[in-house]
């Protein structure tokens, strides 16, 4: 399973969706989840850079998991997700900071069809509040943006979550440039 995580970890970095040791990826297998380790770089994932956790029972192994493990766990419990990706992509972060509402409406055609709307949620890194808000938002959305932090998306496979992360970033990028040009026109 770590190979799938590794494959999309590399793609995330190649696409500029995250860098350094930011971001995390997990998959669910039964009542276990396999998640990237705290401090790992997503384009350097091997079998030692992931850790397996119990979905219901936190353990000492949570200590070496990504600090967002609590958020992943909560989403898995509340939704049908089998894979989750969290990125630190810049345009999504920017849009979450300038948006005056907690819903971002994409302006490009594909994102409109695919995402409809993107919730902007709040909560500190690795906090229960964030875990609750993320799980709530992903009950009826493919992805959301954690304010000032980055997008989080779920899927039945890692690729599906990856596509959603790409779509969110694309929608935010298009909106960013559109807003600039519209402002210049005025």
């Amino acid at each position: 399973m770590w190979r799938e995580i590794s494959k999309f970890g590399k793609k995330m970095v190649q696409c500029g969706l995250t860098h350094s040791h930011f971001g995390n990826i997990s998959v669910r297998v039964g009542n276990r989840l396999i998640i990237t380790r705290s401090g790992s770089m997503l384009d350097e994932i091997d079998e030692n850079m992931v850790v397996e956790l119990d979905l219901d029972k936190p353990s000492s192994f949570d200590t070496i998991a990504s600090s967002e493990a609590i958020v992943h766990r909560h989403i898995y419990k509340e939704t049908s997700a089998l894979a989750i990706i969290h990125a630190h992509s810049p345009f999504a972060i920017v849009q979450s900071m300038v948006s005056s509402t907690n819903l971002l409406i994409p302006t490009d055609c594909e994102s409109k069809y695919f995402l409809h709307e993107i919730p902007i949620i709040t909560g500190g890194v690795g906090s229960k509040e964030l875990a609750k808000n993320a799980a709530h938002a992903l009950k009826d959305h493919k992805g959301a943006i954690i304010k000032e932090h980055g997008p989080i998306a779920m899927g039945k496979i890692v690729e599906e979550a990856f596509v959603t992360i790409c779509s969110i970033e694309h929608a935010c990028q298009v909106k960013y440039f559109t807003d600039i040009l519209l402002q210049r026109k005025r």
Partner: peptide
């Protein structure tokens, strides 16, 4: 304080299990 809360080592591992968190690891 914010950094301590955000780190799973301090806010979850050590806080929940003490340093005995390390045995299984």
């Amino acid at each position: 304080t914010r950094l301590l809360v955000a780190s799973p080592v301090s806010s979850k591992g050590l806080s929940e299990y003490g340093t005995a968190v390390l045995v299984n690891l």
